[in-house]
Design a binder for these strands. Sequence first.
DNA 1: AATTAAAAAGACATTTTTATCTTTAATTAG
DNA 2: CTAATTAAAGATAAAAATGTCTTTTTAATT
Lengths: 146, 146
Amino acid sequence: MFSKACEYGIRAVIYIWSQNTKGVKLGVKDICKEIDAPEFFTAKILQSLAKQDLVSSTKGPNGGFYISDDQENMRLLDLVKAIDGDKLFKGCGLGLKQCSESHPCPIHNDYKAIRENLAKLLSEKTIKGLAKEVVSGKATLSTILE
Amino acid sequence: MFSKACEYGIRAVIYIWSQNTKGVKLGVKDICKEIDAPEFFTAKILQSLAKQDLVSSTKGPNGGFYISDDQENMRLLDLVKAIDGDKLFKGCGLGLKQCSESHPCPIHNDYKAIRENLAKLLSEKTIKGLAKEVVSGKATLSTILE
DNA sequence: AATTAAAAAGACATTTTTATCTTTAATTAG
DNA sequence: CTAATTAAAGATAAAAATGTCTTTTTAATT
């Protein structure tokens, strides 16, 4: 469903959020150790997200990634779109160029429903909310069983 | 969502079905022209499906692909699994190895619901049913507008 | 100012997916 | 039996995704 890049990106951002107390920045190395993701590959993804202003970063000693105030309301949908684009949310399920309401492929309506369902879910989930679940212990990003 | 291979495979099989009058076999070339798919690539997919006994084929003059009686009840789910495997239906949405009911990732339950929804849809749709919609004109596989 | 630590950027490598072409095997028609 | 036709199999290639390493830039600390 999601690309590897997207999986790592989501995990990284949720983790950053879960550690996001005022003024704290997290280095890529720390993040990747925690979420068990390839370091340089994940760095690229975070850099791209920083460029798109979904996360913030600073260089230099004590630098790292963090979430600024105006990035607090990021939805999971925004994150997925920033990494994987919107191909998951548009276009025909069978890859037909001409598929439309008036010229539908055989799974058009059902596929549309699934997709809208997915988009709805992803738009209702905020990163803040997901991080909260991790902080509270209801959910986890760690691959190591406690 | 689906791979290109899967998109071509689904389109090809629905098309075969839609033309499946007793004794008629369709060549790869004809199929691909109709569904606008790359010929040799689609041939590989159909060969794999034939090996897995989801479709039938014969070589030689007037040979081609067709659906035999015991293949009539193929579900869309069977087809997707035969081409893309079951990675879409199992495993964590965020790629965590240890994700489970007792150790869930932050989107575990929602993602599970989406996935079950998708699996349900795909298992309810038979190729026969989809082909019928194409035959009746309610749906289409063609990229050319009528 | 010099050193250090970190992200950013760029280059490179590997793997997977997608796609094409060629050769072989099987079957039918003549 | 021979020729023609078609799927099957194999080889190769191109593109995209994934992953790693090196160099550059920026910023803080000493």
